[in-house]
Amino acid sequence: MDTQSVVARIDRKHPGSILKFIKDANEIVAAAGSFPQLMKAVHEENFDMLVDIVGIDWTPRIPRFDLVYLLLSTADFTRLRVRLQTEEGQEVPTVSDIWHSANWGEREVYDLLGISFSGHPDLRRILTWKNFDGHPLRKDFPLQGKHFDKPFNPETIEDY
């Protein structure tokens, strides 16, 4: 599949939803306003598998985070990346109603980077526990953990 023509079609359908298209990396930089419409249009263009969601903390840049959605078409094995920039405290519309794999993918981003997703059916921490302090993959989170100097008491862990 020719990603260039796919991008042109989506751009005609939802003008302004694509800020930039980087041909070498097959990457779309998405506008925050019409993100759900863009992702629906991408899904309709046969990108039927959401391979993974990658969150990157670019602190002290504003907006702080990059979300990279890795997509694959199983019809002819074309890859596409969709990048969305988001600021701390801002909610990102969920795509778990389009691809079910986004359900756990978004939970992981929420857990490790602290980005909330609006409309997610089950937004809970996934790898750490309920009352875990902080988000480990943020750049201001120390490698040793936040309370390294205090003894760890497993009894304090709250579970879902």
């Binding site: 993974d52 990658v54 969150g55 990157i56 079910h100 794999s101 359900n103 756990w104 992981e108 993959l137």
Partner: peptide, 15 residues
């Protein structure tokens, strides 16, 4: 690396 993300197949299998 500034960031390394592992796309683990089993993560999505378990989901």
């Amino acid at each position: 690396p500034y960031r390394m993300k592992v796309r683990a197949p089993c993560f999505y299998l378990a989901s």
